[in-house]
Simulated scan of single mutants.
Amino acid sequence: MGSPVEDEIDARLAARLAELRVERGWSLGEVAERSGVSRSTLSRAERAEISPTAALLNRLCHVYGRTMSRLLSEVEAEVEPTPLVRVGEQTVWEDRASGFVRRSVSPPHPGLRGELVEGRLAPGADLAYDRPPVPGLEQHLWVLSGGLAVTARDTEHRLDAGDCLRLRVWGPTRFRCLGDAEARYVLAVVLP
């Protein structure tokens, strides 16, 4: 069971996922077919019975044509976009199953193409995405501490603190924490 703040974020995320499906007039079966996620898992995610994993959210972001940051910013209470977001107000989302913590650093704004995200992977964490949320998404990954292996287009890149990897994401990607320390990194994401 998460904290009250985590539970509230999960509840708002569940409601937003249901809204996105209804806005398009899709049934759970149609979203299941488009995403490759079972109807029962989708239903449980929309009712906040489960906290979706990063991989599941990535699949749904792909179906709904948005980045994970945009989806998470849509569950924020802010009505008007703001140019400044203080550290204590930044959205933090945790995939407890994989050991991945994601902080949306950039102020949320639906009209902008770039955003900054802080990622943290626990020792031994292995996070795989079967597709990008938006094909051709540009990413700049800068490792702040620890070691990270990033696989894209069947090529593994091993990164240490200070290293930066730039890539366009067209297919599956994988992020693995190397060593016995947490990997912490900044991800700059730019929509195509």
Rank of each mutant, 00 (worst) to 15 (best):
Met1Arg: 10
Pro4Cys: 05
Pro4Trp: 03
Val5Met: 09
Glu8Met: 03
Glu8Phe: 00
Glu8Leu: 07
Ala11Gln: 10
Arg16Gln: 13
Ala18Met: 08
Leu28His: 02
Ala32Glu: 06
Glu33Met: 05
Arg34Pro: 02
Ser35Glu: 10
Gly36Cys: 11
Gly36Phe: 10
Ser38Cys: 11
Arg39Thr: 14
Ser40His: 01
Ser43Glu: 00
Ala45Ser: 10
Arg47His: 08
Arg47Asn: 10
Glu49Ala: 12
Ser51Phe: 04
Ser51Trp: 03
Ala54Glu: 08
Ala54Ser: 14
Ala55Met: 15
Leu57Gln: 08
Cys61Asn: 15
His62Pro: 07
Val63Ser: 12
Tyr64Arg: 04
Tyr64Lys: 02
Arg66Tyr: 06
Arg70Phe: 02
Arg70Lys: 06
Leu71Val: 10
Leu72Ile: 05
Leu72Tyr: 07
Leu72Met: 14
Ser73Val: 00
Ser73Lys: 04
Glu74Ala: 09
Val75Tyr: 05
Glu76Trp: 13
Glu78Val: 14
Val79Trp: 14
Arg86Gln: 12
Gly88Glu: 06
Gly88Thr: 04
Glu89Trp: 02
Glu89Leu: 08
Glu89Ala: 15
Thr91Tyr: 04
Val92Ile: 15
Trp93Asn: 04
Glu94Leu: 09
Arg96Asp: 08
Ala97Pro: 02
Ser98Pro: 03
Phe100Lys: 05
Phe100Met: 12
Arg103Asp: 01
Ser104Glu: 11
Val105Asn: 07
Pro107Ala: 15
Pro108Trp: 15
Pro108Gln: 11
His109Asn: 15
Arg113Met: 14
Arg113Gln: 15
Leu116Gly: 04
Leu116Phe: 14
Arg120Ser: 14
Arg120Tyr: 06
Gly124Tyr: 12
Tyr129Thr: 02
Arg131Asp: 03
Gly136Ser: 09
Gln139Pro: 03
Leu141Asn: 01
Leu141Glu: 01
Leu144Ile: 12
Leu144Pro: 00
Leu144Cys: 00
Ser145Leu: 07
Gly146Ala: 01
Gly147Ala: 09
Gly147Leu: 06
Thr151Asn: 06
Ala152Phe: 12
Arg153His: 15
Asp154Ser: 15
Asp154Gly: 10
Thr155Lys: 12
Glu156Ala: 15
Arg158Gly: 09
Leu159Pro: 04
Ala161Phe: 08
Ala161Met: 08
Gly162Gln: 10
Asp163Phe: 11
Asp163Met: 06
Cys164Arg: 14
Arg166Ala: 14
Leu167Tyr: 13
Leu167Thr: 08
Arg168Gln: 09
Val169Cys: 07
Trp170Ile: 00
Gly171Lys: 08
Phe175Gly: 00
Arg176Phe: 12
Asp180Lys: 02
Asp180Ser: 13
Glu182Gly: 03
Glu182Pro: 08
Arg184Cys: 04
Tyr185Cys: 04
Tyr185Pro: 01
Val186Gln: 00
Val190Ser: 03
Val190Met: 04
Pro192His: 07
